[in-house]
Design a protein around this nucleic acid. Structure first.
Lengths: 226, 226
DNA sequence: CCCGATCTCCTCCCCGGGGAGGAGGCTCAC
DNA sequence: GTGAGCCTCCTCCCCGGGGAGGAGATCGGG
């Protein structure tokens, strides 16, 4: 409907109540930088539309027919779509909150949130940050602060099976280099690199270097940014 | 010069002098199609805000604490953000100009530029074109016209250049899928996927899908799940 | 001293990926 | 209506990547 330069934050509305969707659409439509690109009436539709339209933010209800919002969130996150999910529900029960956040949601708000707070939250989530309603957050922290996962630990996976040299080659692969470029970089022959790459793929059960790059990022062997 | 009824141009102001930022904000605020979305006081903030807000244009000072404008420009450009940098400085020394443009800046103006010229320049840069103050340009050409780099290749390397479908395909590529797998996933022929992938590579100036995966992670199109 | 692991390098072979150069249909803007 | 994008699909062609199946060299430990 609009242009594809994705300037405004593109939002997908997911709720089984059409009336409520209409209300939200009007609220968000008043914001210049928010663009409701589609609506879904249940989780299945939500996942499908997320995959096809790649919205920046999905405003997701929890209680819905066919597939609930938590399952839909998990499906979207597991599919690794570049899509953030902001849960917006009538019930801020703890189980919902925990389930949704575990599923990978970027935020959790109650439906009675002021319009201004909602649009702010959408922008925040679109920017890659997270939002949880203060009241809900407080309860969350009270209950789970002591069991928060250790952020320092992110152990490499099957990468341990690799030799020093193989890991080194994998890093170069994950920089987008070709075999010949890596050979030049490490001052060995291209054949040698091919051998190393072959070993890496075999040991990690991967099909090609593309999957090797994905795994390198997912395991943290290499990290985005710099 | 034609498409100005569309969404506003989102601008990030970067200068270490708050007063000067205020002045610019007022000037730009008077323009309906310009939208100052944020301000930064140094290069570090500028890079961070660019990454998070993806403004269309960054108005960048050069002399700043922590990280100067040239380094910040380079960081933004290297991250392949769909963001154009317009340098705006008190000093139009040649070293600054060359350094900034080498770093990937889309324009270079002196701070004493008339307000009208500035807003025009912003629109021009936002449209993907470049602007250098005539006086500065003259000096540049005098010195470097004979060593100008090959103009044949250096296309816009920005995810924003991609169509909806191309971005969608890129996401699948970045999941490690083959063309035939993506074809099955999206219910089209493998040939179509090859076409889309080809366009993605061409538009982003990449060599193969491996580099596409790297870029997808580096730009945040897809993110590792920690 | 010999074994296993690692790193190095080779050839032969096949296939998927990517470029070139199309074409038809569709929608929207002018 | 005309044209510009976009999405869809095709063929022909080439090359880099990856598998198979080796081999020689080094080094540490049993």
């Amino acid at each position: 409907m609009t242009d594809r330069t994705a300037r405004p934050v593109r939002v997908l509305l997911v709720d089984d109540q059409p009336l409520l969707r209409t209300g939200f659409r009007m609220v968000l439509g008043a914001e210049e930088d928010l663009d409701v690109v589609a609506e879904a009436g249940d989780g299945v539709e939500a996942v499908d539309l997320s995959r096809r339209l790649l919205p920046d933010v999905v405003l997701m209800d929890i209680r819905m027919p066919r597939m609930d919002g938590v399952a839909a969130t998990r499906a979207i996150v597991d599919a690794r779509l570049p899509v953030r999910v902001l849960i917006l529900t009538t019930f801020d029960l703890d189980e919902y909150v925990v389930g949704a956040l575990r599923a990978g949601a970027s935020g959790f708000l109650a439906k009675d949130v002021p319009a201004e707070d909602l649009v702010t939250a959408i922008r925040t989530v679109a920017a890659g940050e997270a939002v949880v309603a203060p009241r809900i957050l407080k309860r969350l922290l009270d209950r789970f602060a002591d069991v928060l996962p250790d952020p320092s630990a992110t152990p490499p996976r099957s990468l341990a099976a690799l030799t020093e040299r193989e890991r080194e080659v994998l890093v170069q692969v994950a920089r987008g280099l070709s075999n010949s470029e890596i050979a030049a970089e490490l001052s060995v022959s291209e054949t040698t690199i091919k051998t190393h790459v072959g070993h890496v793929l075999t040991k990690l059960g991967l099909r090609d270097r593309v999957q090797a790059v994905v795994l390198a990022y997912e395991t943290g062997l290499v990290r985005p940014r710099g």
